[in-house]
């Protein structure tokens, strides 16, 4: 039996700017021990899904079960077995790292002594022993995130919800966070993880559900998703941008889709069915037309390519058309505070 089940979840937010279907009939099923990645652009419905499952919001329609417990009927029982870490490190700045964790332990009703012991245990496991007695106020973003994640582990949860666990972190802290999460999952905790970084889903998740506009549009392992895009990509870099038009025609001849380009037309790329054969032919044709190359090669599709193919738009979701996650449950649009959120497009090359 799957440990996380969601069936036909619908959540509609209405605001002055119109109605947003944050969830439009989303289904999800996660077996025990799996790290499931919810991958999708901003506003796809990832956060809303997690908030329904971790009892923070009620869907307008549909049902959800966590470890067989009906989330809507018995949220309090669900809360005892899950751990949840939100998009923003939810820590009390004025408490020390240890006190933050002790507070969480006490609210899990572990008792004061047991809570203290658990807090010390976690602070040590997260490599924060030295900083544990200092107020969180002075912590770096990465340290706060770690305390927040530790807070989600106080009750030794069997199911862990992580909503964009590395958003806003610098690359080094992000790698540290990945390591921590990987260690956790090695112990068999079931994790539902949301991310807009393809690289992150690739690195952490056993299985990925691609979410777009409130429903799951594709699922599978990272490799399966990449395979859905099929074949290879032939990539060439021209010496002279003026050759761009001619080179594009050559690529189009052997490609299974329209060629795409970047860098002022000097870099061209096309999806092909038979990689090596197509590359040979493209190179032969380009040489015949005296088009000089800086670089040429072939690569496997990335999750980025898969995402583009599946959703029809790039993974960074910067088009701003669908921002369901940014409307709060009362239907007000949230202030745009994304300056602090790196919105880099990351590819796995």
């Amino acid at each position: 039996m799957p440990i996380i089940e969601a069936y036909d979840l619908v959540k509609i937010y209405s605001s002055r700017s119109g109605t947003v279907h944050a969830l439009a009939g989303l289904n999800l099923s996660v077996p025990e021990g799996r790290v499931e990645g919810l991958l999708g652009p901003n506003g796809a419905g990832k956060t809303t899904t997690v908030k329904v499952l971790n009892t923070l919001i009620k869907p307008d329609r549909g049902s959800a079960r966590v470890d067989g417990i009906d989330v809507l009927a018995d949220p309090q029982r669900v809360r005892r077995i899950i751990g949840a870490s939100g998009q923003y490190a939810a820590v009390d700045e004025n408490l020390t790292g240890l006190e933050n964790l002790e507070m969480v332990g006490r609210l899990y009703h572990l008792g004061v002594r047991q809570s203290r012991r658990r807090a010390a245990e976690l602070v040590e496991a997260f490599g924060l022993t030295a900083a544990g007695n200092r107020p969180v106020k002075g912590f770096s973003g990465g340290m706060r995130r770690r305390i927040d994640l530790a807070g989600a582990l106080v009750n030794k949860p069997r199911i862990l919800f992580l909503d964009e666990p590395t958003t806003g972190l610098d690359p080094r802290s992000r790698l540290g966070m990945w390591e921590t999460i990987s260690e956790l999952v090695r112990e068999g905790t079931t994790v539902l993880l949301t991310t807009q970084y393809l690289e992150e889903a690739d690195a952490l998740a056993d299985h990925i559900s691609v979410i777009d506009q409130g429903r799951v549009i594709a699922k599978g392992t990272a490799d399966e998703l990449k395979a859905q895009v099929g074949g290879h990509r032939v990539v060439v870099t021209l010496v002279d941008a003026a050759d761009s038009g001619a080179a594009r025609e050559v690529l189009a001849r052997y490609g299974s889709a329209e060629p795409s380009g970047a860098d002022g037309g000097r870099e061209l790329e096309v999806a092909v069915q038979q990689g090596p054969v197509a590359l040979q032919r493209v190179l032969a044709d380009l040489e015949q037309q005296d088009i000089r190359l800086h670089d040429a090669g072939m690569r496997r599709p990335t999750l980025d390519d898969a995402f583009l193919t599946l959703t029809g738009h790039p993974a960074d979701g910067a088009d701003g058309t669908d921002r369901a996650d940014e409307i709060d449950p009362d239907g007000r649009a949230k202030p745009t505070d994304h300056q602090d959120t790196p919105r880099r497009r990351e590819t796995v090359v």
């Binding site: 971790n54 009892t55 923070l56 309090q76 029982r77 809360r79 005892r80 899950i82 949840a84 939100g86 998009q87 923003y88 490190a89 939810a90 820590v91 009390d92 700045e93 969480v104 609210l107 899990y108 009703h109 807070g151």
Partner: peptide, 13 residues
């Protein structure tokens, strides 16, 4: 704003 209410609300308190 800081997400602490979310934290509290996911606890069995």
């Amino acid at each position: 704003k800081e997400g602490l209410i979310d934290r509290f609300r996911t606890l069995p308190m």
